[in-house]
Design a binder for these strands. Structure first.
Lengths: 203, 203
DNA sequence: GCACAATTGGACAAGGTGTACGTTAATGGG
DNA sequence: CCCATTAACGTACACCTTGTCCAATTGTGC
C-alpha cells in the first residue's frame, strides 16, 4: 500500500554513495578477493568517508547482503515475467536456468563478484536459488516424490549442481553463449551424468 | 603399520598441541561458526599459548588447511582400497559416493565442522572431491564427451550436486543411513531429476 | 534562498594480529 | 638416571581494524 516507503524521492547523495560502495566492493572482490577486503579499503577506493559507510551499512557483510537483495528482486521479476508468458520457456522444467545464465551474461562482473563473495554471498545466493527452484518444482507438477527422495533434497541437488555449473562458466569468462551452457546443464540434469561417464549406459 | 617415514619420532608435545588445536577449532566451529573465531579464542579454549600457535601455524586458515590435508590422505587411501577390491563398489559409477557418506557418518563432527568451515574449507574440499571424481571418470570409461559437454563441466556438476546432498544430509543429523542417501544421490545423478519434478517424463 | 539532511574528517577506546625474547618445563638420547 | 635439547609459556610491543561520537562543511529538495 505505502509505496512511498522505499522511494519517496531518494536523496541523490545517498543513491550515489550506495551505488559507489556497491561498485567498489565488487571491483575489490575481483582484485583481492572478498576475505582480504577491509572497510577501510572500500572507503578509500570509493572516496567515501568511513563515517558515511557506517551511516548506511553496519559491516562488509551488510553491504554485500544489500547488493544481493537488489539482485533477488531482479530475478524474481524476470521469473514472474517468464512464467506469465506462454512462450516456450515457461512450462519447461528447470526453466530458471536460461534466465539466470542470461542475467549473468548481462552482468558478468557483478556475478563474478558474487560467486567470489565468500560464505555470505554464496549462502544468500543459494537461498534465493533454492526458493526459485522450490517454487518451480511446486508449479511444474504436483507429483509427490515417487519413491523416497525428499523434495528438499532434490531442490538442494539441483541448486548445488547449478551453482557449480554457473561458477565453472563464469571462471572461464562465460565463453559459451547462455543458450549453450543452459542446454548442457539441462541435459546433465534430465538425462543424468551416466552418458558422459561411460559408454555402458545402464549396467 | 607405523609409518616411520613421515614420523621420525615426533615430539609428543607437538603432536599433542597440534591435535588439541585441531579438535578445538572443530568444536568452536560448531559452537560459534568459522568466521567468528579468533586465534585468541582457539588458544584460550585449547589452553595453548598464543606464541605456541604461531610456532605451528601462520593463521586460522592454515590450521584449517592442515586439518583437511589429513583428511585428503584418509579419503585417497579409502578410495584406493575400494578400487583395488573387486567388490561391487569398485566398478560402479559414482563409486566415491558411498565411501564418502560412510566416512562422514564415522566422523560426523569433523565433517560438520568442515562444511561449516568457511570459504577455505569448502574450497579445499571441492578441490579434493574434484580430483577424486576426475580420476574416477577417467578410470570408469575412456569415452570422450559424446556431444559437446566438457569433461571438467561434468566433474564440477557432480561435485557441486554431491556437496549439496552431503550438506543437506549433515544438516539433518545424518539420519538416513549412508546407503540410503547414497542411493538417492546416485538415482538423481543417473536417472536425472525429471522423474522427481513432474509426471510428464520427457516433454 | 533556506532549512535540513548527508558527508566529512578527526579522535577515541577496544580488541585482534604478528613478532620477539627470556623463562620454565617436558622430552628423549646417552 | 641425567642433561642437553627443544617445545611451550607469557609478557610486552607496535601496528592495524573496528565501531562510535561529534563538530564543521557541503549538497539537496522544497
Amino acid at each position: 500500500m505505502v509505496m512511498h516507503m522505499t522511494k519517496p524521492s531518494i536523496d541523490r547523495r545517498v543513491a550515489r554513495t550506495r551505488a559507489t560502495l556497491h561498485q567498489t566492493l565488487m571491483s575489490l572482490i575481483l582484485k583481492q578477493g572478498y576475505e582480504a577486503i577491509t572497510i577501510r579499503d572500500i572507503c578509500d577506493a570509493a572516496n567515501v568517508g568511513r563515517s558515511t559507510f557506517y551511516a548506511h551499512y553496519t559491516s562488509k557483510e551488510d553491504l554485500m547482503r544489500s547488493g544481493i537483495e537488489n539482485l533477488r528482486q531482479v530475478l524474481l521479476d524476470r521469473q514472474r515475467d517468464a512464467l506469465a508468458t506462454p512462450g516456450d520457456r515457461s512450462h519447461r522444467s528447470l526453466g530458471f536456468s536460461l534466465t539466470l545464465f542470461e542475467h549473468a551474461r548481462d552482468h558478468i562482473d557483478l556475478h563474478r563478484g558474487l560467486v567470489g563473495g565468500g560464505t555470505v554471498a554464496l549462502g544468500i545466493i543459494r537461498q534465493i536459488l533454492s526458493d526459485v527452484v522450490r517454487d518451480e518444482i511446486a508449479a511444474t507438477g504436483d507429483k509427490k516424490s515417487s519413491d523416497a527422495i525428499p523434495r528438499e533434497l532434490v531442490v538442494q541437488y539441483v541448486v548445488g549442481a547449478y551453482m557449480a555449473v554457473l561458477t565453472w562458466w563464469l571462471d572461464r569468462g562465460a565463453k559459451p553463449p547462455p543458450t549453450e551452457v543452459d542446454r548442457m546443464f539441462r541435459r546433465l540434469a534430465t538425462d543424468g551424468v551416466l552418458p558422459h561417464l561411460a559408454e555402458g549406459g545402464s549396467p
